[in-house]
Write a protein that binds this DNA or RNA. Structure first.
Length: 852
RNA sequence: GCCCUCGUGGUGGAAUGGUAGACACAAGAGACUUAAAAUCUCUCGGCUGUAAGGCCGUGCCGGUUCGAGUCCGGCCGAGGGCACCA
């Protein structure tokens, strides 16, 4: 009997699957289709544990669905545009294209040995001209349908490198290369009109039954529908054209607590004032010297500048409020102006205290005049509150009524309007970078912005570009921009901006259904395959990627690229947790950190020491694995040492799939040992002589329980639970009596139940035990419900909630009998200490609780 | 700062409101072996007790309940997202 050797069997079975063509998806109207998709990877260079975890989970689902009679589509491709390729080109002088395709080769070579059930015939990379050409075609259709438009928007601008920076390239307000203080700069950019669909995208969340609740909540919050009041303050001694300042508030009930009006530094009034007043100009400039990241803005010190202007309170013409420019007010949300109520908003309160502005109480206790001192006090929807308003005096109402009453009053009096607003902003897709999909439009002196003709697509990226200086090389390419106007034919210039890489990943799922189609999608194919039945990916994509994809599905439906039935792209979503690892770092003298790889570090007594110099380094526990932090772990070593099945089994074991998992090196070896044990047990069974017709009932019962539990685990993404049951079933099998037909059948069933997780080993032992054909093509075993019921149940007995004894009784025994037996138990009698029970709770089959 | 999530033995984790710690890892003891590896068996939350048993225990404080790891409120800590990282 030979030892288990992964390297001997894994290649063999992968070849067998290829030969049988089991993973090549073809339309087949006679079978139910099942489309399982994992978020495709960015080709960063090497696969990491997160990829292995993600694709193994998808593979389990895909293989399980194949076994249950589905026609499965399980494709794989590459999200291949993006900044790292340009960064690499700048750092080491290569070309982004070469870097990207090399990485794809390497990573595909690393993925292949895992034996994943991908239909590789559908593979594409988003940087393939065939793909981004179709994306340009989609863009033109969206443009035609009014789903895209141009407007000004701010970007992070590095004044030294003269280039646009991504938020991640801004470090403490400075450009990552030049170290220059970053400025905000306005550029004309392209936008998708996602906000037109805000309400619908929000409403449709309710129908996403198989999405995680937290993702739905995050999306809802992100879309951020709010009801509020929009109204204007009259400006006293207003500058020409600025008679009023319009504000939006979701808390009109706090209007009597107003203490000042705040406007954004980008507000038209602020922009006007800075032309009149150098101090205001300086303050606004300071406000604009801030990253565009919302987190940075919110964390920055709250600062303001009194404009000297005053406005009249709408409820009291004699009440004047000062107008301040404040650095925390976003021009992009609402009207770019707010009224501040420091009594009920922490940020307003901080601001008021800093600049010595009044704090006016608006809410009071029901029975006395004590103000509600809670700064973030939101009146409860259903309970009544006492609050100050100027149209009805001190009044009592529920919070909701208070808000509605103010809106009603404002509308009737004619100084305000109840409006619905969304936090969701339109999606800016323009990027001033080379390695992305060119936006297929032309700028003509006579005709303005003109869409490129479809027959000229794809507009391909030029290969002869240099990355020796920062900025977009398309801008400085000698000839690429030159073209003729698609409308008038005169010499014109191409747009040099490329598309946000989120565009690429917003429709790839549809392209996988017909990757070679001459149009973005083939209608027959999308009708058959869409929607994605199960989408699996990282929780870090919970908002942007998923929301953009949902928008794209709608836009593609409007433009006829998806059928009416495919409004939502993903029927079910599973968000896996991240693979995390400690970060080892050391602060340099200039304050910037240096990161070290795990293998450069030695761990002693919970501290980390750099092997090179023996000195201690800082440990940041449990952070997302990230290339830039050097805390990635390479799974290839594990695959090489133990085989694919071990790596797969290992990443599925122990941790619940949705939870983050801290990577530790131990454990892979144990997984390998277990698989070797399974092989050994199966091989022993295969060579046993069969005794006559021996039915091992206990073994069969456990087999049916295993079928039930493993199936349930796989169906509900409880892979760790499935594996725990498989361990238990393996132990039962190992200890069961040799030579029974039942044992052989149980071993074959074990092979089937393990096959989604360890497909190679399963094929091997399936064949060893005389299974028919390939295990991947065998129908999934079905549990016999009769075998799942135990005749006897063990029930704990509690006295006042503390466990004192347990009894084993027939499952059909009436509660009154159970109660009698329970009360007679030694432990129960002792705990009751002579008292008579007040109450005895018997939960049949579960527990008995005696209350004394 | 805002939105979201998580917190259980030495470790990963299990537990439809019903026996907390399943299943594993690590550790310890033993069997086999000349020896080692491999394999197999046993022990394994803390305190206490010869034992039977008892007390404590799911980040902290409080609440609901016959019964709370689970539900509710408030804290503390860690992680993810915050629109140009993918």
């Amino acid at each position: 009997m030979s030892r288990y050797s992964a390297s001997d069997i894994e290649g063999k079975w992968q070849a067998a699957w290829d030969k049988a063509g089991v993973f090549t998806a073809k339309r087949d109207e006679t079978k139910p289709k099942y489309y399982v998709l994992e978020m495709f990877p960015y080709p960063s260079g090497r696969i990491h544990m997160g990829h292995v975890r993600n694709y193994t989970m998808g593979d389990v689902v895909a293989r399980y669905k194949m076994s249950t009679g589905h026609n499965v589509l399980h494709p794989m491709g590459w999200d291949a545009f993006g900044m790292p390729a340009e960064n690499a080109a700048m750092a080491s002088g290569g070309h982004p294209k070469e870097w990207t395709y090399n990485n794809i080769d390497v990573m595909k070579g690393q993925l292949k040995p895992l034996g994943l059930s991908f239909d590789w015939s559908r593979e594409f990379a988003t940087c393939d001209p065939e793909y981004y050409g179709q994306q340009q075609s989609l863009f033109l259709d969206f443009l035609d349908a009014g789903l895209v438009y141009r407007k000004n928007a701010v970007v992070n601008w590095d004044p030294v490198d003269m280039t646009v920076l991504a938020n991640e390239q801004v470090e403490n307000g400075r450009g990552w290369r030049s170290g220059a203080i970053v400025e905000r700069k306005e550029l004309t950019q392209w936008f998708f009109k996602i906000s037109d669909h805000a309400d619908e995208l929000l409403d449709a969340i309710d129908g996403l039954d198989n999405w995680p609740a937290k993702v739905k909540l995050m999306q809802s919050n992100w879309i951020g529908k709010s009801r509020g009041l929009e109204f204007s303050f009259d400006v006293i001694d207003a500058p020409e054209g600025f008679d009023q300042v319009t504000v939006y508030t979701t808390r009109p009930d706090t209007l009597m607590g107003a203490s000042f009006v705040g406007i954004s530094a980008d507000h038209p009034l602020a922009r006007h004032l800075e032309t009149q007043n150098a101090d205001i100009a300086a303050f606004n400039k300071e406000c604009r010297q801030m990253s565009t990241s919302e987190a940075d803005m919110e964390k920055a010190e709250k600062k303001g500048f009194h404009t000297g202007l005053r406005v009249r309170h709408p409820l009291d013409p004699n009440w004047e409020l000062p107008v301040w420019i404040a650095n925390f007010i976003l021009m992009d949300y609402g009207t770019g102006a707010v009224f501040a109520c420091p009594a009920h908003d922490q940020r307003d309160l901080d601001f008021a205290r800093k600049y010595d502005l009044p704090v006016r109480d608006t809410f009071f206790a029901l029975d006395n005049d004590t103000p509600v001192d809670h700064v973030a006090f939101v009146p409860p929807k259903t309970e009544k509150v006492r609050w100050v308003n100027h149209f009805a005096g001190l009044d009592v109402a529920t919070g909701e009524d208070a808000i509605n009453a103010t809106v009603d009053f404002a509308e009737k009096a004619g100084w305000g309007t109840g409006v619905t607003k969304f936090r969701l902003r339109d999606w800016g897709l323009s990027r001033q970078r080379y390695w992305g999909c060119p936006i297929p439009v032309v700028h003509c002196d006579d005709c303005g912005v003109v869409p490129e003709k479809k027959e000229n697509l794809p507009i391909q990226l030029p290969d002869d570009v240099s990355f020796d200086k920062p900025g977009n090389p398309l801008d400085r390419h000698p000839t690429w921009r030159d073209c003729s106007c698609p409308s008038c034919g005169k010499p014109a210039q191409r747009e040099t901006d490329t598309m946000d890489t989120f565009v690429d990943s917003s429709w790839y799922y549809a392209r996988f259904t017909s990757p070679n189609s001459g149009t973005p999608t083939d209608l027959d194919d999308v009708k058959y395959w869409m929607n994605v039945d199960q989408y699996i990916g990282g929780i870090e994509h919970a908002i942007l990627h998923l929301l953009y994809s949902r928008f794209f599905a709608r836009a593609m439906q409007i433009t006829g690229h998806l059928p009416q039935t495919a409004v939502e792209p993903f029927n079910a979503l599973f968000t896996q947790g991240m693979v995390t690892h400690a970060i080892y770092k050391r602060e340099n003298q200039d304050g910037r950190p240096t990161y070290f790889y795990p293998e450069q570090v030695e761990l002693r007594d919970g501290k980390a020491f750099l092997i090179a110099d023996g000195a201690e380094v800082d440990i940041v526990p449990s952070a997302k694995m990230s290339k830039s932090k050097n805390n990635v772990v390479d799974p290839v070593a594990i695959i090489d040492a133990f085989g694919a099945d071990t790596a797969r089994w290992f990443v599925l074991s122990d941790s619940p799939p949705e939870r983050d998992v801290e990577w530790t090196a131990s454990g892979a070896e144990a997984a390998g040992k277990h698989l070797a044990r399974v092989y050994r047990i199966a091989a022993e069974i295969a060579y046993e002589n069969l005794a006559a017709n021996d039915q091992d009932q206990a073994l069969l019962k456990d087999m049916h329980k295993a079928i039930h539990d493993v199936t349930q685990g796989v169906e509900s993404f409880g892979f760790n639970a499935s594996i725990a049951k498989l361990y238990g079933f393996t132990n039962t099998l190992a200890k069961s009596k040799a030579g029974s037909e039942a044992k052989r059948m149980a071993a074959r069933t074990l092979a089937q139940l393990m096959s989604p997780m360890t497909p190679h080993l399963s094929e091997e032992i399936w064949a060893l035990l005389g299974g028919d054909g390939l295990v991947i093509q065998s129908p999934w075993p079905v549990a016999d419900p009769a075998m799942l019921i135990d005749d006897e149940v063990t029930m704990p007995i509690q006295v006042n909630g503390k466990r004192r004894a347990e009894i084993t009784v027939s499952k059909d025994l009436p509660s009154s009998e159970i109660e009698k037996i329970a009360l007679a138990q030694d432990g129960v009698v002792r705990a009751m200490d002579g008292a008579t029970p007040k109450k005895v709770i018997v939960v049949p089959g579960r527990i008995i609780n005696v209350v004394v």
